[in-house]
Structures are given as C-alpha cells and as structure tokens.
C-alpha cells in the first residue's frame, strides 16, 4: 500500500474542507470495506484520506416519518437491516442489506459508502498483468475475452463488462430513492437512478458525484407497495457471496389480485443498479401469475448481451425476477 495522510475531522464541514485541501485524489473513508481493501490491493492509492466513519451527523436514521425514510450515510448496514419499520414495511430494503457480505462487514460498512462499492471483477482487483479500463483508463479490458461468468449482461460496453456488486442500491433504485450530497459547490439532491454511470467509453467514471462531494443521506419516499416486496439474491454459495443474479421486487395488488403497482430492479447482472421499468409496466393491470411474472422477467432482461460464459445469467435473472415476484406477491397488501 502506498503511504497516505490521514485526517479524522470532527464534523461534516471540516471533513469537506479537509478533502478539498488534500487535493483531487484524496478520498473519504467510511467503513473501509471497499476503499481500504482496494488500497491493500494497490488498486486505489489516494495520497490522503479523510475519515468520516464516526461523524454523528451522518449516523441519523429516521424511518418514522409519513413521507420518507431517511438513512444517514454513516449508518451501519447491520443496524439499518434490523430497523423494525424496514423489516415490517420494506422487506426488500432490509433483505438487501442482510444478504450482503457477512455480519462483520455489515457492522463496519455504511449505507452511504455501500452505494459506492466497486466491482469485484477479478481483472479489476487483480492488478498486473490484467488490463482494466476502470483501473487504468485506456488500458483495455481483460474480461471481454476472459472468464466472464460473473460479469454483466446489461449495460455493458466494449470498454467494460464489470458487474455492479452492491445489493442495497438495487433495492433503493426500485423505490425511487434520492441521495443528498454536499460538496465544495454546495448541497444538491441526486436521484439514485442518476448516481451511477454505465461504463460506456469511460468505465473509470462510476458515479455522477463531483470531486469532493460527500453523500450525507439517502431518502426513500414512503410507499405501501414495499410491504409486498423482497430482495432475492442468488449466489454460488448460500451466503457470503456476491450475486450471480438478484432481483428487488415489490408489488401492490387490488382485491382481485390485479397488480396496481410494481417495482423491479436487478443486481448481479448489470454494470450499475438496474431499474427494470419496462418490466414493471408489463405487470400493472395484470393479475400476478407465474406467467405474468415470467413475462416481466423476460422484459427486464430484454436487450441483455451475453458474453462467453455468462449467458446463463439471462435465464437465471428471468427466473430470479419470476420467483421474487412470487415472494413479493405472497407478502403483498391486497
């Protein structure tokens, strides 16, 4: 690991000042489970790090409000996963957190930092001799002609097929979450749907955050639809693994079992948190059946581009959506 300078300011304004002072390559450090890990690998080498892990302003969680759920960026994944309101009314959010990593890592990692989790692509993390446009822009992509079983089939480009590895953002995007950020140019609010880039020709540009911007909180509009929801995560192991495919689904049904609202987002198969709006539209107004659920899954994967070894992910994701809609439907409020 390259040496770096460390600061642990006592407040958000001080942290922002410190980061600006430290220059464009400095980074905020929260739980460390991504940044410190990648620094150990030599993939990240910031000259300076501003520790925001214990800033009290970032730790506030409020799920009791009538209009929105508020998650301070510094709240720990393990804590938010057990929020009673989430467990009761937003199981997809609670499950997306509880099925991520291990309890130890969830105790460390923050819900804000988790949005910025970086890909687990072997060629990205592995360093030399692998080429990676994310790690070294313009160097090429070893995954394109490589072992791509874990890679994305949606939102890929000729520069990058790395999978967005997170779960929480997938569940959030399905619920129209927004993110409040504060930076050198002041505060702004970004829809989570606008937070992540597809790789395009610049896979190194992963988010729309400007230099020095810090995520303060995540806000989710309240919705009864999420009572009938789940985060269905399919992995190579039963636990402690990244998704091969995952689906965040929520449905509201009327008294006749007809879908009045549907939310579908995909993880493990796309280069960013992937909202499947077209798939949602196929469901609204239709009864929730195995067939309509499957059709929604197929709509969600329309346009998927298989690589050499990951073609199975398309069918797997279709089935994951199908099964997730079944679970959501069983929980749905009629």
């Amino acid at each position: 690991m390259r040496p770096f300078a460390y600061a642990a300011p006592a407040s958000v304004p001080e942290a922002l000042d410190a980061l600006v002072a430290a220059g464009p390559d400095a980074r905020f450090l929260a739980g460390g489970t991504t940044l410190y890990d990648l620094m150990k690998l030599g993939v990240e080498a910031p000259p300076a790090v501003v520790d925001v892990h214990r800033l009290p302003e970032l730790a506030v969680v409020d799920t009791a409000g009538p209009d929105e759920l508020v998650f301070g960026a510094g709240a720990r994944m393990a804590d938010v996963a057990e929020d009673p309101v989430l467990l009761r009314d937003y199981p997809m959010l609670a499950e997306s957190l509880a099925k991520a990593a291990s309890q130890q890592l969830r105790t460390m990692a923050t819900v804000g930092g988790n949005l910025l989790q970086r890909t687990r692509c072997s060629y990205f993390r592995g360093g030399a001799p692998f080429a990676c446009n994310k790690r070294e822009p313009g160097s090429g992509c070893s995954a394109l002609e490589g072992i791509d079983r874990a890679h994305a089939v949606l939102g890929t480009s000729d520069s990058c097929i790395a999978t967005y590895a997170g779960d929480w953002a997938v569940a959030l995007i399905a619920l129209d979450a927004v993110v409040d950020v504060l930076g050198p140019d002041g505060a702004r609010t970004v829809a989570l749907a606008d937070l992540h880039h597809e790789p395009g020709s610049h896979p190194e540009r992963e988010t729309t955050l400007a230099a020095g911007e810090l995520i303060l909180r995540i806000r989710v509009p309240t919705t009864r639809t999420a009572r009938g929801s789940t985060y269905h995560k399919i992995r190579d192991r039963e636990s402690y693994a990244f998704a091969l495919a995952s689906a965040a689904t929520a449905v509201a049904l009327d008294a006749d079992g007809v879908v009045t609202d549907a939310r579908i987002a995909l993880g493990g198969v796309a280069t960013r948190p992937w909202r499947a709006a077209a798939a949602e539209r196929t469901l609204v107004g239709a009864p929730l059946t195995v067939d309509t659920a499957r059709r929604a899954g197929e709509a969600a994967l329309a346009g998927a581009r298989p690589g050499r070894h990951n073609g199975f992910k398309i069918e797997l994701a279709v089935r994951t959506v199908t099964d997730a809609l079944r679970i959501a439907g069983e929980r749905a409020v009629q």
């Binding site: 300078a5 460390y6 600061a7 642990a8 002072a21 430290a22």
Partner: peptide
C-alpha cells in the same frame, strides 16, 4: 496540498489536520 505521491512525500510533513 498536504502530501504528494512522489517519494518526497515521506519527508514532507503533511499539513493539519492530516
């Protein structure tokens, strides 16, 4: 700038709060 990435970084004391 409190630190630099070149080798002189080691001998350059970073500025507070770093």
């Amino acid at each position: 700038t409190p630190v630099r990435t070149d080798e002189t970084a080691r001998t350059t004391a970073p500025s507070p709060p770093f």
